[in-house]
Design a protein around this nucleic acid. Structure first.
Length: 720
DNA sequence: CTAGGGTTAG
């Protein structure tokens, strides 16, 4: 027997439409399909409530958009509610294209959107879709008159933020009523995306004055901004709201608090909060690790890093970056190898850190490996990666590859251009660097103070005095950049190297700020090239007043005395150095071979191939003597008798590296060496001869520039 | 609408 109610047709008298409550309690698509067929059998499909409930379920988390579409297409004239539900469904599954298509279909069917339509549609946008449709949809919003709906405003603000158009977002924010805390949260999150943390801080103050009460989302965003700005005061104020507004402390909030205190250097507070977190996750640990790193206490970080059982790629990268910050590049690479052994995949952030390490070590082979890794493993090749690649290639002396990366980049920012300009300049291609600079201006990229350091050093490295003066003036006139000490240093360098020592001194005297040791150091360097002992003494005195422990100055002055044959001064100064116990920074050269960075100091005997290296060095010396090599000991410093002087120069670290390079690589392979100090005259001479006699390109990156040795001459034109 | 790591000089 059939029960009456289940077979009787829908009656207008029925209080409740049948099958509604089964849909509401439905658990799966399987159940829903059964209910759907029942509605067809019962002819209930024309009932709007049934339609709404069916489509809503299919669009929900347990649903299936394909099925939703089937049901939806059978409905003759869907209501705006149904269209919205479909749009919302597509947003949920990140099918933004379909969302937009739905919206367009809806307009074609002459259904007007309501104030739910836009938030649902915009919510599903990715950056690309937002760029493509954002502005147009904003026009629709205005046309249909929803521009004063707070939900629509919030959605639009967040869409503009997604496109990176914060100013448009801010425009909408400024005319909104600002009563809704979500509006504030959305704009804060937008400023976070573009890293304008200062705006968040300013607006937070405004929000407080307006008396809008923050939610936990607000506090998290404000704390994150304070962490980046290292603003402890505002951070503490945000912390107070948690108690005052009775905001429940979630893990996210506790992590944000820990990070804020750690970033501000308040490790005591940070550890207290950290200690009270019940279910610490990797983000909590990262906050502590980066806290120590920020304070320069890298060696405190491993305590926590090693304790954390589940280290993810962010934590690894943070730790690797910690070593980079204190110039411990080799340790950074060691950690990277450990990371790979642990089977943690590096992402684009890690890659940037590794490229930075390669750049500083001159490790081209590893850098090339990273480039291949990026291409093969589909690491997101974003603008940071591109910029780091350019920097790596330039600092490894391979300008061509750097340029290739540069031109392949789809987007270029001021960092991209600056890295290329600086890279060309230090590699001795001043003219190309300046050409790049004019292309940069034509591309409407605004240079900053670093760009101008690159431009001025391009002029310096190539001796273009008049151009340098012009750019120095342009910097302020055209771009409103006030020159800093580095720029004055470049000018002193430029004039000094060209032999205009007095003019260089005038520049220093007329500086609006107190000349620092960089500026005086530039003058001292010029005195060395032009052998002006008097001015050198004066410059050295200035530096030592500012920085009494600057051992490089003593060494340079010694070299200058030697170059000017002022042996009395030389001995006097050397005695003073010995009396005061001033230690010369040991010269150190690095060379990469098969992905391993080998390091040499003068007279080094620690290398496993020491014997072969010294044999090769003997062989080199006698080979080169045939073409006129005579040891030049004028720049030797730490030595006693003449014979020892010769020994000392003979065993300079870059010579050992060169010998090692010659025996460990095949004929014709370029030898690349990185030195921590300025290259000495003797090593420079020897490298030129090596490049000729053995027909090898030798590239030495010293403290300030590159020396590309080829066929017996050097790109620096013996001017360094 | 919510937390952590990355690029240019001296």
């Amino acid at each position: 027997m059939f029960s009456n109610s289940s077979i009787s047709p829908p009656s207008t008298l029925t209080q409740e439409t049948p099958l509604i409550s089964p849909i509401e309690t439905c658990e799966s698509m399987h159940q829903l399909k059964q209910i759907h067929s029942q509605t067809i059998k019962l002819g209930l499909l024309t009932n709007p409530t049934v339609q709404n409930k069916l489509v809503t379920f299919c669009c929900s988390e347990k649903g299936d958009m394909k099925y939703a579409c089937k049901v939806f297409r059978k409905i003759p004239r869907p209501s705006v509610f149904l269209w919205n539900t479909m749009i919302k469904g597509y947003s949920r599954i990140d099918s933004h294209k379909n969302g937009v298509l739905m919206y367009l279909d809806m307009l074609k069917s002459d259904v007007r959107p309501d104030n739910y339509t836009f938030p649902f549609l915009l919510k599903g946008f990715t950056r690309d879709i937002a760029v493509e449709f954002g502005k147009e949809l904003h026009c629709h919003v205005v046309k249909f008159g929803f521009d004063s709906s707070v939900f629509v405003q919030n959605a639009l603000i967040s869409t503009y933020c997604l496109c990176g158009e914060v100013d448009m977002a801010r425009g909408i924010f400024d005319v909104s009523c600002k009563d809704d805390v979500v509006t504030w949260n959305v704009i804060f999150s937008g400023y976070k995306r573009v890293k304008q943390f200062d705006e968040t801080r300013k607006l937070f103050g405004e929000m407080e004055r307006k008396g809008v009460l923050p939610t936990s989302v607000t506090i998290v965003l404000v704390l994150s901004a304070c962490a980046k700005l290292k603003d402890l005061d505002v951070g503490k104020r945000a912390h107070r709201y948690i108690k005052e507004c009775k905001i429940v402390p979630t893990l996210i909030l506790e992590n944000a608090l820990t990070d804020m205190y750690a970033a501000c250097g308040e490790m005591g507070f940070a550890l207290e909060i950290f200690g009270n977190i019940k279910n610490k996750d990797v983000i909590s640990w990262t906050a502590i690790v980066t806290g120590y790193i920020n304070r320069g206490q890298v060696d405190m970080a491993p305590q926590y890093f090693d304790q954390m059982p589940e280290r993810d790629y962010v934590l690894w990268t943070a730790m690797i970056d910690g070593y980079l910050r204190v110039n411990r590049f080799r340790e950074a690479l060691t950690l990277f190898r450990e990371m790979q052994t642990s089977n943690i995949r590096p992402d684009e952030f890690t890659i940037v850190s590794i490229l930075t390490a390669c750049a500083n070590l001159g490790a081209l082979e590893l850098g090339e490996w990273v480039k291949t890794y990026i291409d093969k493993n589909k690491v997101k090749n974003d603008i940071f990666v591109g910029n780091a690649l350019i920097d790596m290639y330039c600092k490894c002396g391979d300008v061509e590859k750097a340029q290739r990366v540069f031109w392949e980049m789809l987007r270029k920012d001021k960092f991209t251009w600056t890295a290329m300009i600086v890279g060309l300049a230090i590699n001795g291609h001043g003219d190309k660097a300046l050409d790049m600079f004019s292309q940069m201006l034509r591309a409407s990229i605004i240079p900053d103070e670093v760009t101008y350091v690159g431009v001025l050093s391009a002029c310096t490295h190539t001796g273009m005095v008049d151009e340098g003066r012009k750019y120095f003036a342009d910097m302020t006139i055209q771009h409103g950049i006030e020159p800093n000490e580095a720029h004055y240093g470049c000018m002193v360098d430029l004039l000094g190297r060209a032999g205009h020592l007095n003019e260089a001194l005038e520049v220093i005297k007329n500086m609006p700020m107190k000349p620092n040791s960089i500026v005086w150091g530039a003058l001292l360097g010029a005195c060395r090239v032009h052998r002006d002992a008097e001015m050198a003494e004066m410059a050295a005195k200035q530096i030592l007043e500012l920085d009494p422990d600057n051992e490089a100055v003593y060494v340079l002055l010694c070299n200058i005395y030697a170059a000017c044959n002022r042996w009395d001064n030389f001995r006097e100064l050397r005695q003073m150095i010995l009396d005061r116990g001033i230690k010369k920074t040991p010269g150190c050269s690095m060379i990469e071979m098969n992905g391993v960075v080998h390091e040499f100091v003068a007279g080094d005997k620690s290398h496993p191939q020491t014997k072969e290296i010294y044999l090769k060095l003997d062989e080199m010396t006698s080979d080169l003597k045939f073409v006129g090599y005579m040891p030049d000991i004028s720049e030797v410093f730490l030595d006693v008798g003449e014979e020892d002087k010769e020994r000392a120069v003979y065993q300079h670290s870059e010579k050992l590296a060169m010998a090692f390079g010659l025996i460990s690589s095949g004929p014709g392979v370029t030898i690349r060496i990185v030195k921590n100090l300025r290259m000495c005259v003797d090593c420079h001479r020897m490298a030129k001869l090596v490049s000729m006699v053995y027909d090898r390109e030798v590239i030495v990156r010293d403290k300030t520039r590159f020396h590309h040795f080829k066929h017996g001459s050097c790109s620096c034109k013996d001017y360094w």
